[in-house]
Design a protein around this nucleic acid. Structure first.
Lengths: 342, 342
DNA sequence: TACTTTCGTGTAATCGATTACATAATTACA
DNA sequence: TGTAATTATGTAATCGATTACACGAAAGTA
């Protein structure tokens, strides 16, 4: 159909060289005004589109940025990506999406693929801190490609990160449960190899300590972020000698499962049992028995990550910037833990 | 830090030409086995990475595919994107995300940007069928870039689409409400300029007709896909001379709002009033009073769109393939409309 | 041995845009 | 009018990989 129009085609038509066309289109001040106008008019008439690939090859910048997440179909990650996209779009960047599905191997592949694709930066949430792909990360850094972690971070020199204060999130939530009168607070914990879950747990522990409540190992149940896991956890917890009267779950989905199981057993929430989750997934607000949860401001997290990238992208190679942004978590107290509101 | 290694560097080191290196790395059969091995070993030792931009410029294929959605932070769109990514990743494609925020202008920009970026195809859900950017679509087609619509489609020659049978979704849901004994069924309709909403509405209308129920214009309330809109709609409907006893909402969010408002007014669901939504958003299942909804199998829709793209991408320019895939909607009957289950 | 195949590499053009450097055209000034 | 300064444009290299074509060397055939 329509042939691809290049600056050579325009040059030929106007009996000038491609160099002049290029300069005219790039507002090079050395071009005669009349020539510039003519070129621009002709380019428009011929429906010329600059070939970004050629430009990218020449300049070494692709104007693409890679984003790696465990999966995209979770409200949290999708919202972060939205934030990134909105912040970067005005700067002419396109966002390339990769999913790891919580596999270190995939994460590894994605890193190499993005570097191959010459992205100008990578913003990601790591899959597993103990994963064996430091080589891939070092490869990114060696190529001087800015790397920014968000939410799930990993300690690597030269890598910036944007996280929330998970410790404080855990602390605030646990304190809140204590304030509501709960004495035996259990914790559904996530994968402790990930900082975020460790910190939520530590915040929980510290809140207990500060309130003179003894920490009990048996109250800590490791769960996957799934409804079913929450149900099973309740099952386990209620069989304890002293069953808990509250749960601080590091996952909203597990919190939901816990609530479902508690209801099943006719345990009244929040009267006899309080539950709080983490992430502020949309459904926590929508439920009839709305669920208390910690908001991670994913949109802001995405935008912030993008800003950190922009700060780094133009810096000279020699200066390694390592910026650690920590956002404040926000506890949304809802019915599942509001005894006062009953 | 580490310089960028090119095939010229390898060639220089081995005292051969870049052409030989290129051929060795590409398993060209004309290369001596010993040379091939040597090149491959040296390339690995030097940590050579093929520059995809150079390849893309030469071959005219970027191995990127553009995906345009109204917004990414909705379960439906995120799931579709997940499907696309999973299907295309094994084929070496990267997915580039663009959001329109329901703006035709942005949609237009995104189309041009993606073409500029030399994507190998575009998979999208249109923002507004009546939007004035046919020029942008024609531009895509003229460049022989495969264009595939999913969910929200637009009739354009040469464009394939993957949708669900919205008419049938509306029909099934309405029939179900009728079967539950509802006699006065209202409809919260979406933007009628979009096929999907028109078809859901037409399915609703047909179901009424087939059951001998008179269609009433005043039972159709246009809403945005928001909780608040659902509340307002109920407010309006209940002021009618003959208020309805059921709502088929084209949006889960509006359905949720409707339910909240009905509860507020102490109207018993599903006993006195049935409600059904559309999209099968995660929260519809999680609610205590779970909401009946139509599943659009977004993951499958994404994968199917990707497959249609793959079919078209290698075809010669002359043959215009126009494939219309219509997936079956699946009605998930839940508590908000299950009188039998009480 | 002389001649034809076959094999393995090298040469150089190409993809499209940018840009340092060279050069031609114009203007400025004495 | 002659020369310097300025301005506008052309030439050609470059980014990195691929590939049609050319060519020398080795192997096969008579």
């Amino acid at each position: 159909m329509s042939e691809k129009i290049t600056i050579y085609d325009i040059a030929e038509k106007l009996n000038i060289t491609a160099a002049t066309v290029s300069r005219a289109l790039n507002n090079n001040p050395k071009i005669k005004e009349s020539t510039r106008e003519l070129v621009i008019k002709t380019a428009a008439a011929m429906n010329y589109k600059q070939n970004k690939l050629a430009l990218a090859l020449k300049s070494g910048r692709s104007n693409n940025i890679g984003v790696i997440v465990p999966r995209i179909d979770s409200n949290f990650f999708a919202s972060v990506i939205r934030g990134i996209e909105e912040e970067l779009h005005p700067h002419g960047y396109q966002v390339i999406i990769c999913q790891t599905h919580e596999s270190t191997k995939r994460e590894n592949e994605n890193l190499y693929t993005l570097i191959d694709a010459q992205v100008d930066g990578i913003i990601m949430s790591v899959t597993d801190v103990t994963g064996e792909n430091d080589g891939a990360f070092q490869n990114v850094l060696q190529k001087n490609v800015p790397l920014i972690f968000f939410d799930r971070s990993k300690h690597i020199d030269g890598v910036s990160s944007v996280t929330i204060n998970d410790f404080r999130g855990g602390y605030l939530t646990t304190k809140h449960l204590i304030n509501e009168g709960c004495k035996y607070i259990a914790h559904l914990s996530g994968d402790q190899s990930l900082e975020i879950f460790k910190n939520r747990f530590l915040g929980y522990k510290q809140a207990l300590l500060d309130s003179g409540i003894t920490f009990k190992e048996e109250y800590v149940i490791p769960v996957k972020s799934m409804v079913e896991a929450g149900k099973n956890a309740v099952d386990t917890l209620l069989q304890l000698e002293t069953p808990p009267d509250a749960i601080f779950s590091s996952s909203d989905f597990a919190a939901l499962g816990a609530i479902q199981e508690l209801k099943e057993r006719k345990i009244s929430i929040p009267n006899d049992f309080c539950v709080a989750g983490f992430s502020n997934e949309p459904f926590t607000k929508f439920m009839e028995l709305s669920i208390t949860s910690v908001d991670q401001s994913p949109l802001e997290m995405g935008k912030m990550s993008a800003r950190v990238f922009l700060e780094q992208v133009d810096k000279t190679d020699t200066i390694k910037i390592e910026k650690k942004v920590v956002l404040a978590p926000e506890l949304h107290i809802r019915k599942s833990s509001s005894r006062a509101a009953i």
